[in-house]
Structure formats: structure tokens, C-alpha cells
């Protein structure tokens, strides 16, 4: 990596990258989140997920939203990891509700939370607005999400807020985790934020008096991994 003197002449990658997406990397069709076939979620559940994630993290003037970043794909893949099965949590009975400060107390792992909630949400939308969540106008979708966030909705014994927090957490993970996990497509989340990815060497950037960091992100170099086709191996910038 170059010394401090050479840095200032390098253009801001995030700007050029936003203007010319995918210029360097040829489009790998199976890597495009739009072509992803979910393995955990049903088609109907996945359609909900795509729309709900997009409302949480929408495409706008800042850059890509959750769908283009592959956050729903990320979430689908997470469902088959130990995390999805709740193996990272203490899940021993009995389960009691308590004050919010005492934390998550439901007997459900992430798989259960999604499975147990998406269909009831769609049913709620059908009964209230005559359409599935995915078919509602964005304002309506936001209303439903707000109702969940503020616990005005409850799906059987799952409080809306519990599901909403799970969804928000996983959506943001999907927008910003290494592309190896299926989200943050083309490192779009990192470019938007100005995070340089796996560079992890800032010896010459400890204090540049508040100047913007000049390099765009790098992903984790390819390693043996089922999702390695999603890697961006070239250093850019």
C-alpha cells in the first residue's frame, strides 16, 4: 500500500464505482442476487423478505438497497448455519416473558422466527389491506413494519417487535457483511459507507487531518468456501 504522499492523487473509488457499477468485474449471472433461488424460504416467504428488507434498507440516492445488495440471499443462507438453528444462544427451557431489559426470552431460533411470522404477516395484510405484503405500496409496507416495530402487531406468541428486530439486524448484516456470505453485493454496502473492507492496514492513515480515505474496499481474498464465486479478489483503487 502506498505511502501518504501518493494517496492524495488517487481518485475516490466510491464515487467512480457508484457511477460505473460492475465495470471491471464481468457479470457472473449466478452471483446476481436477482437470480437467487432460496433454499430455506418458500417462494412466498422470500418475496416477503425481499420487500421487507428493501423497506428497511431502501435503494435511494445514497446507493443500492437491501435487494440489490443481496441481503435476502444472505438471510436465506444464514438460516442453514448454526446461528439459524439457534446454536449460538442459550435455549434451555423454561421460557418466560419479562421486562425488555432482560433480553430475548422466546423459545424460537431465527428459523422459527421467520417461519412463524411471515405467513401470519401476509394473512394480516390480506385481511386488512386485501393484498400480500409484497403487493402493498411502499407506504403501506412501512406502516406494517412500524406496527411491528412498536409492538402493535403480534403473531401468535411472537411479539411484532421481536420479529422486527430480527429482520432489521439480519438486513443490516446482509448489507454490510463480507460479500462471501451472499450479501453486500459487489461490496456496494461498503462503498456507500466508505468502509475499505479487508484492507486492515492503516499505518499511513492514522491521522491525515480529516482527509477522506482515498481507497475503495477490498473483499476477503478467495479461500476454499462454498460461496467463493461471490468474492471480489482484485484490489481496486
Amino acid at each position: 500500500m502506498g505511502g501518504a504522499a501518493s494517496l492524495s492523487s488517487v481518485p475516490l473509488l466510491s464515487r467512480t464505482a457508484e457511477a460505473e457499477p460492475d465495470k471491471k468485474a464481468p457479470k457472473v449471472p449466478e452471483n446476481d442476487p436477482a437470480h437467487y433461488k432460496p433454499t430455506f424460504f418458500s417462494q412466498e416467504e422470500y418475496l416477503f423478505l425481499c420487500h421487507a428488507c428493501e423497506r428497511i434498507f431502501p435503494q435511494d440516492e445514497n446507493g443500492p438497497g437491501a435487494q440489490a445488495l443481496g441481503a435476502p440471499r444472505f438471510i436465506d443462507r444464514q438460516m442453514s448455519t448454526p446461528y439459524g438453528f439457534g446454536d449460538l444462544w442459550y435455549m434451555k427451557a423454561p421460557f418466560h416473558e419479562g421486562p425488555p431489559e432482560l433480553g430475548y426470552q422466546l423459545p424460537y431460533n431465527p428459523r422459527d422466527l421467520y417461519r412463524g411470522t411471515i405467513t401470519p404477516i401476509n394473512t394480516h395484510c390480506l385481511m386488512t389491506y386485501n393484498a400480500l405484503f409484497a403487493a402493498l405500496p411502499p407506504d403501506r409496507q412501512d406502516e406494517v413494519l412500524h406496527d411491528m416495530e412498536n409492538n402493535r402487531l403480534r403473531f401468535n406468541d411472537i411479539p411484532g417487535a421481536a420479529f422486527f428486530e430480527q429482520l432489521r439486524t439480519n438486513t443490516l448484516e446482509g448489507a454490510f457483511a463480507d460479500p462471501a456470505y451472499g450479501g453486500n453485493h459487489d461490496m456496494g454496502g461498503w462503498k456507500m459507507m466508505g468502509f475499505p473492507g479487508a484492507r486492515a492496514d492503516f499505518m499511513d492513515w492514522i491521522n491525515q487531518e480529516g482527509a477522506p480515505y482515498p481507497f475503495g474496499p477490498v473483499g476477503m481474498p478467495a479461500r476454499p468456501d462454498p460461496y467463493s464465486s461471490a468474492f471480489q479478489t482484485d484490489e481496486e483503487g
Partner: peptide
């Protein structure tokens, strides 16, 4: 006077 509940997620 409360019932303590498990710390189920690392937070």
C-alpha cells in the same frame, strides 16, 4: 423481587 431470566444472547 424479580424473577431472573436467562442471558440467552451475548449482548
Amino acid at each position: 423481587d424479580q424473577t431472573a431470566l436467562p442471558y440467552r444472547q451475548l449482548t
